[in-house]
Amino acid sequence: MWSTEETAEYLGIPVATLYQWRHRHIGPPCYRIGRWLRYDPADIRQWLDTQKAA
């Protein structure tokens, strides 16, 4: 599981953009583990594939 910072770095976007996408329900899926948001790398890659098709 990737942190928000690791996910943002992988996608090449600011961390704030991930938070905005999450708030607007348009970004990649994430999980709340305790007080932290975590992203599954497989989910990120799948989400990216759907974005190419859109």
Rank of each mutant, 00 (worst) to 15 (best):
M1K: 07
W2M: 08
W2P: 00
W2G: 02
S3E: 03
S3F: 03
T4N: 06
T4R: 05
T4D: 04
T4W: 07
E5T: 12
E5N: 12
E6K: 00
T7Q: 03
A8S: 07
E9F: 08
E9P: 03
Y10V: 08
L11R: 01
L11W: 06
L11I: 01
G12D: 11
G12H: 08
P14R: 05
V15Q: 00
V15P: 04
V15C: 04
A16Y: 07
A16W: 07
A16D: 13
T17I: 09
L18N: 02
Y19H: 10
Y19D: 01
Q20E: 13
W21P: 02
R22M: 08
R22Q: 05
R22A: 09
H23E: 13
H23F: 09
H23P: 01
R24D: 04
R24I: 04
R24T: 03
R24L: 10
H25W: 05
H25Q: 14
H25S: 08
I26Y: 00
G27L: 07
G27S: 07
P28V: 05
P28T: 05
P28I: 06
P29T: 14
P29W: 07
P29R: 08
P29S: 13
C30I: 08
C30K: 00
Y31Q: 10
Y31C: 09
Y31K: 13
R32I: 12
R32P: 07
I33V: 15
I33S: 13
G34C: 15
G34A: 09
G34R: 11
G34Q: 09
R35Y: 00
R35M: 01
R35K: 14
W36I: 14
L37P: 00
L37E: 06
R38V: 01
R38G: 00
R38K: 15
Y39M: 12
Y39F: 15
Y39N: 10
D40R: 10
P41N: 12
P41A: 11
A42K: 09
A42H: 04
A42W: 01
D43E: 15
I44Q: 09
I44R: 09
I44E: 06
R45F: 01
R45K: 05
R45Q: 08
R45A: 05
Q46E: 10
Q46N: 11
L48R: 02
D49R: 07
D49T: 11
T50F: 04
T50Y: 05
T50I: 13
T50P: 04
T50W: 05
Q51T: 11
Q51M: 15
Q51E: 12
K52L: 11
K52M: 04
A53V: 13
A53C: 11
A54Y: 06
